[in-house]
Design a protein around this nucleic acid. Sequence first.
DNA 1: CCGCATCCGCGACGATACTG
DNA 2: CAGTATCGTCGCGGATGCGG
Lengths: 119, 119
Amino acid sequence: MTSTDNKVGYSPKSVRPACSAEQAEAALRMLEGRWKLVIIFRLFERPVARLSELQRAIPAVTQKMLIQQLRALEQDGIVTRTVHAQVPPKVEYGLTDLGEALAPVFEHLLSWAARNPGR
Amino acid sequence: MTSTDNKVGYSPKSVRPACSAEQAEAALRMLEGRWKLVIIFRLFERPVARLSELQRAIPAVTQKMLIQQLRALEQDGIVTRTVHAQVPPKVEYGLTDLGEALAPVFEHLLSWAARNPGR
DNA sequence: CCGCATCCGCGACGATACTG
DNA sequence: CAGTATCGTCGCGGATGCGG
């Protein structure tokens, strides 16, 4: 894929929709937000993570935003939230099937990240 | 810090990093924002688009945000901006090689969008 | 100690009107 | 047609408090 002659004959769309524009924008809405993609990315490398673990894995995020975005992701059926009623409290987060279905997206996103200059 | 404990043994569903976490988060930063992904998505189906065309394609976005996000994407080397000095003014936007490299990401993202319930 | 909610301040974002 | 200016709203960061 290193050849640049791929641009020749670039008349049609290089990305096939595969879904309606409304579905696409709806999907983008549930992935937008300052930390959602980062959270999902971390949940891929640690499928069952406590809140404190996610905090340690993503030091830049505040606890408030972490909880807030996790709840939103839970509402959208992307992450699971399991509360263990005990002392000290223990809440574990994970990915649903829908969340794990994002794996190929992240794989290509990460290879793209490795490709770009970073700026 | 980057030497995170490699507690392997996870199921094969995990995503292979393929790049550093810093690169990943840097990449996510340049794709975050309310409309950037939608704009890129539209630029895939219309590789050379004027501002008014993008406005028509994305009715929900305001002109201010459209220009603002396009400038940010241009700064990050994802979209190109071509000004034609004439009357009436004509400015065309397109994808750079880096932007077009996002194609596989969008393909999987769109198939994921078609899969999820939408909500 | 861990998970979570609340109050405050700022910057991103939405809506409208205006300029070249 | 492309872009700017202005104002109001809301997402987000920071700090604090509270229950288990």
